[in-house]
Design a protein around this nucleic acid. Structure first.
Lengths: 163, 163
DNA sequence: TATTGTTATACTCTATAACTATA
DNA sequence: TATAGTTATAGAGTATAACAATA
């Protein structure tokens, strides 16, 4: 059953101060300057740390937030569909969902059509938490927009869309 | 001394096929559509998987590659400087360097000025491997450029630079 | 006191294999 | 036989704390 095995995070999701992310002027990056992957990684570190810090009041990781958002917008989704949508391993999703279920934010209902599937849906408290989380996430995004400039923010969203 | 403790990777760096990364049309992403972090993560997954696959002949992870590049371009760097430059934890860098040292690609020399520091430098085989790796990485980057279009590639590099 | 390299611990995340129950 | 959910395992990566040697 694995009912309450490893379900709850022992420690709340941590967020360190986004450290000064650009390299010191004195160290040459050489070939890294031409690699998109290098700058994407740095951007990811910065953005995720800021996101985690901003969402601390609701104690949701980026992955948990994305699960709540997509589940809230697609009633009765199966775990496999959710995993494929968010590029999260099905195996990992199991424990992630356990935690959200334990917190009373989400339910796994038996699928009427297919006995193997779970139909995922948010509970009323889940909806409330999601609404709070969305407001905080919007604040995070607004901070990003301010930092980057609205133009660049829009441009990045569009340019990264089809990866 | 921890000479050969946990130093070598048991399994070569894996790279799965970049799976179809955009979500199925039928599942609504809702609020995620407005979040840069979501698309940055997806881009990172894609780019890193492609990088790992392309560099398989030299068996170097993105982190190892970046360490070789920066060490090769900055003689006598300390571990702390390297860690800060690449946003890798000092503690993690220790084992990463052990592996590269064991493979004979890199040396930790005593710093003449400061007894606490190591002066990092590539060995001749390290330089050879780095040259091969750079050629492969350039091929990876060219693939990205083709996929995105030269304009968008350039634009992304510029836009992500100051994170 | 502070910093460098190091070890240790705990947790997240990725990748895989295998099992069960359903289909 | 295939798929959905699950468990388990191994490794990478992140975050912290603490320690010895050196500054």
């Amino acid at each position: 059953m694995g009912k309450n095995a490893n379900s709850r995070r022992a420690v709340p999701y941590r967020a360190t101060q986004p450290k000064r992310s650009s390299a010191q002027a004195s160290v040459a990056l050489d070939a890294l300057n031409g690699h998109l992957g290098y700058f994407i990684r740095r951007a990811q570190i910065w953005v995720f740390q800021d996101f985690i810090r901003t969402l601390k009041p609701v104690d949701l990781s980026p992955a948990e937030y994305s699960v709540l958002v997509v589940t809230g917008a697609n009633r009765g989704l199966s775990q496999a569909e959710l995993a494929a949508t968010l590029a999260i391993e099905r195996a990992r999703l199991v424990r992630l969902l356990h935690r959200l279920e334990e917190r009373g934010l989400l339910q796994r209902l038996p699928s009427s059509a297919d006995g193997r599937r779970h139909a995922l849906q948010l509970t009323p408290p889940g909806r409330t938490t999601l609404a709070r989380a969305k407001a905080l996430a919007a604040r995070h995004e607004q901070g990003l927009r301010t930092r980057l400039g609205a133009e660049r923010h829009k441009l990045l969203l569009a340019a990264l869309r089809d990866f």
